[in-house]
């Protein structure tokens, strides 16, 4: 098993959180993962992106030039990183914010997911990241959603555990959307 995914958006969208979560869940399942963040010098509002590399052997490079998959959460991320997705790979676009229909490439699997609307519907605009992550995991099958939920429980401080069901719903909704889109 060797997978890598690149996630990008702006600070506050929870990009780094889901990168963390994915890598941690991979480790919980007994595999290896690296999570490598890159963010602006400024602490808030800058661009945020990270790379997660997952393997059942040794993780090689924590950075990837042409990622196998990309979660692109805002127009800036789209513009900068969409062209870099590996041929035959997959791009998950947050169509709530990205107007570009992604049609400039026909050599990859493209799913446009209205993550902001879906998050609001589930009950909190901050769940955009979980919707995207649920979608990615459905596509890649790199970890079980249960592992993600387990990781989430460990990452979230106890006092925030009341938000777990809502996060689970977002993961499930993202997964269902991608399942349908790829069907």
């Amino acid at each position: 098993m060797n997978h890598d995914v690149f996630m990008a958006g702006f600070g506050g969208q929870g990009v780094l959180l889901i990168g963390n979560l994915l890598a941690y869940a991979t480790i919980l399942e007994g595999n290896n993962a690296s999570y490598f963040p890159a963010y602006g010098v400024e602490k808030r509002g800058g661009a945020a992106n990270c790379t997660v590399v997952m393997s059942d052997g040794a993780v090689g490079s924590p950075v990837v030039g042409e990622p196998e998959a990309a979660l692109l959460m805002n127009p800036a991320a789209m513009e900068q990183f969409y062209p870099r997705v590996r041929k035959g790979g997959m791009a998950l676009l947050n169509s709530s914010l990205i107007e570009d229909d992604g049609s400039s490439r026909s050599d990859l699997t493209l799913v446009r997911i209205p993550a902001n609307e879906m998050a609001l519907e589930i009950g909190d605009s901050r769940l955009v990241n979980m919707v995207m992550l649920g979608g990615y995991v459905e596509y890649s099958r790199v970890v079980a959603r249960d592992a993600l939920k387990e990781a989430l429980k460990e990452v979230l401080p106890e006092r925030n555990h009341r938000f777990l069901p809502m996060n689970h719903n977002a993961l499930e909704a993202g997964a269902a959307f991608v399942r349908e889109a790829l069907a």
Binding site: N20, A33, S34, Y35, F36, P37, V59, P62, V63
Partner: peptide, 9 residues
């Protein structure tokens, strides 16, 4: 920063 900032098992 790569080795210092990245997270792994």
């Amino acid at each position: 920063a790569v080795i210092g900032q990245m997270k792994e098992a």
